[in-house]
Write a protein that binds this DNA or RNA. Structure first.
Lengths: 196, 196
DNA sequence: TCTCCGTTGTACCGATAGGTACAAATTAGA
DNA sequence: TCTAATTTGTACCTATCGGTACAACGGAGA
């Protein structure tokens, strides 16, 4: 059995500090406090220092969503993948109590430093959701717009829920967005069908 | 004629620094650089230091929106006020190139410090937009939901536009949201009418 | 058991953080 | 013009910032 604290074990803890305080607010002292690791270990795992940590955290978040959400949306049965996406979103963001690290980084000066990772995260999310909708038979243009609306709505809901301290707003919004991707009931959205 | 730099003149400059770098990232040196004022003047205008500056900035933003957007939504002709809101939003946020200070503060640890001002900003926006919609004859429940959707959509659009560096996304989203408040064309939304 | 290498704690670095003290400069009012 | 209050620049304070150096520790393989 190796040491308890390997790099992959530490990253989620570091992520939590960045999420809570932002890039500038995440001081090394707060990170050592949260992780229980001294600077020695920290700089051993992340030779590039704070920027290295943030990069690792962004990569980890990106990889996590890729595995749990994006890939299923592209590769699995569309309906099941979309259901899975909503469950994942609700639990990952803890009903709105937890914010989106990538979205938070996008808003302040931190963005310029990690522009690539931040941009790719959202672009991939929209693209893979669009893909699932198209595979469901949606008109591609409609699929694109709705995917954009959904991802954008999630981010907006996170901002508003946290701003007003009202997590019911988050859940309510997710329910509304979810219905928007299930147009069977109202039959408003899809214009073109492919199969059967 | 008094000094060129009175407190009201300085606040917008300070606001720009907070907007650009976030609360933690807005160092006093960056603020002195932007405003051209030394620490002496800065602490003369804002005896409470950095926190005092941020409070003043939040108050100023809140008062500005109250005057330019919220009050018209409550008091003026609803249609004109809503049109005015959209114009203001587009120009204030510079087609998505500029972010929402209040939304950015809401996302990181800064929120706890200014929870009241942050919450009130969004609550008032939603409430006054709802008011305008009700005065337009909307069903109150629908008005509430749509107002929430709109404010939330603006915030989400700001996050996504900045994350993907795509200001067309912002404008596109605003156009879509704008249509949502003009249901004459499709006649989807309002269920109850009051007047004539 | 000894050795070796991944891991860790400690001490330290210069730079900058936010904030204070206060005298000099500037201004407005009489 | 003289005076009193406002406004400003400068020097300085301590705490903490991100980062480095390095010796001590630890367990696994020989």
């Amino acid at each position: 059995m190796r040491t308890l604290n390997e790099r992959p074990d530490v990253i989620p803890l570091v992520a939590e500090v960045f999420r809570e305080f932002g890039y500038e607010g995440a001081s090394l002292s707060r990170i050592t406090e949260k992780t229980g690791l001294g600077k020695g270990s920290l700089y051993h795992f992340f030779p590039g220092g704070k920027e290295d940590m943030a990069k690792a955290v962004l990569d980890e978040v990106g990889a996590w969503f890729e595995r749990e959400v994006f890939a299923p949306l592209r590769d699995d049965a569309p309906e099941a993948a979309i259901t899975r996406m909503w469950d994942t979103v609700i639990s990952y963001f803890r009903s709105g109590r937890r914010i989106c690290l990538v979205g938070a980084f996008a808003l302040d000066g931190t963005r310029d430093r990690f522009a690539d990772a931040i941009s790719r995260y959202f672009v991939r999310w929209i693209a893979s959701l669009r893909d699932a909708l198209v595979r469901l038979g949606w008109d591609p243009a409609d699929a694109n717009q709705s995917a954009e609306e959904v991802v954008l709505g999630i981010q907006g809901a996170l901002v508003l829920a946290r701003a007003t301290n009202d997590e019911s707003l988050f859940v309510r919004t997710i329910d509304r967005l979810r219905l928007r991707l299930e147009p069977r009931k109202g039959a408003q959205r899809p214009r073109a069908r492919r199969g059967a």
